[in-house]
């Protein structure tokens, strides 16, 4: 009986893993295919009917600006994460500790800002960006993404900081810490799962955004992966499928692994603070 239940569990797990891996695996398989293999409808799309080739990946790196896009995305992503944390952590902490009605109301007000869709905001924001002489540079996006990430992350962290009892900080202060040390040694480590979530959210958002990236930046040198790749690899009605898939997989796979590792830590963090 136990054996049956256990094998059922693993079967479920296997099916779930298959489901998750399937699109990524298809991307990877496609990226190495010859054109004549890919475009023959009689061929099995999941197998190599002709020997795999590296030429589309070579094309991606040598004949497009993909390396520049990669670098821009990474640069913007890291800066957006830093700006988000620098603004959202102190904001959330002070709102959480601000007693009375105003703390809660401000928290909700901050969150409401996040709900305004980018399609409404990108025209007024473009004016601000031009005013700051940042249009057409990576800085345009570095400045704009925090308008989404900071409110959301502040609201998210607000919940985390609220769940940390004040007694813990009071105890740390009577144990010999200053206000700042009590925050850094006790509250901040306990909010780590929330902060990790914010890192993932802010990075993923700046990587996946299309509307701001496409509208604020027109020079190729400042484009990100999400805006640059479709512009360079979809020409009219011609899709460079293999290079497109490669461009996607190269970003997606390392990120998936990094998030997986981070998620493990997250769960451990949750387990340590609850119960």
């Amino acid at each position: 009986m136990r054996y049956v239940r256990k094998s059922g569990f693993y079967l479920g797990l296997f099916l779930f893993a298959l489901f998750s891996v399937f699109p990524v695996a298809w991307m990877v398989i496609t990226a190495f295919k010859e054109d004549s293999d890919l475009y023959n409808v009689d061929n099995n799309p999941f197998l190599y009917n002709l020997p795999p080739t590296l030429k589309h990946i070579e094309y991606l790196f040598t004949s497009t600006h993909y390396p520049t896009f990669l670098w821009n995305s990474l640069f913007i992503g890291v800066l957006v994460v830093v700006i988000t944390l620098v603004l959202a952590v102190p904001a959330a902490y002070s709102l959480a500790r601000l007693v009375g009605r105003w703390g809660e109301r401000s928290g909700i007000a901050v969150f409401l800002v996040y709900l305004i869709p980018p399609t409404l905001l990108f025209i007024p924001l473009y004016q601000l960006i031009s005013f700051a002489h940042a249009a057409n540079t990576v800085w345009a996006l570095v400045l704009v993404y925090p308008t989404i990430t900071v409110p959301f992350c502040t609201w998210l962290l607000l919940g985390f900081f609220k769940s940390i009892p004040r007694d813990l900080e009071d105890a740390a202060m009577t144990d010999g810490c200053s206000r700042w040390q009590a925050f850094r040694r006790v509250s901040l480590p306990l909010a780590m799962p929330g902060i990790a979530t914010c890192v993932v959210f802010a990075f993923a958002l700046s990587l996946s955004d299309y509307i701001y990236a496409a509208s604020f930046v027109s020079s190729t040198a400042a484009r990100t992966v999400s805006a640059g790749v479709p512009i360079e690899l979809i020409r009219g009605d011609i899709y460079f499928w293999q290079s497109l898939m490669a461009a996607g997989a190269i970003v997606a796979i390392p990120l998936a692994i990094a998030y997986g590792l981070l998620f493990n830590k997250l769960v451990k963090g949750f387990a340590a603070t609850s119960g």
Binding site: D167, M173, V186
Partner: peptide, 20 residues
């Protein structure tokens, strides 16, 4: 004086043990 300069040991009702 701030708490850290007083050398007072406090025991809390909630115990306030650091969970991490």
């Amino acid at each position: 004086l701030p708490p850290r300069a007083r050398n007072v040991s406090m025991v809390f009702q909630s115990y306030a043990l650091y969970p991490n």
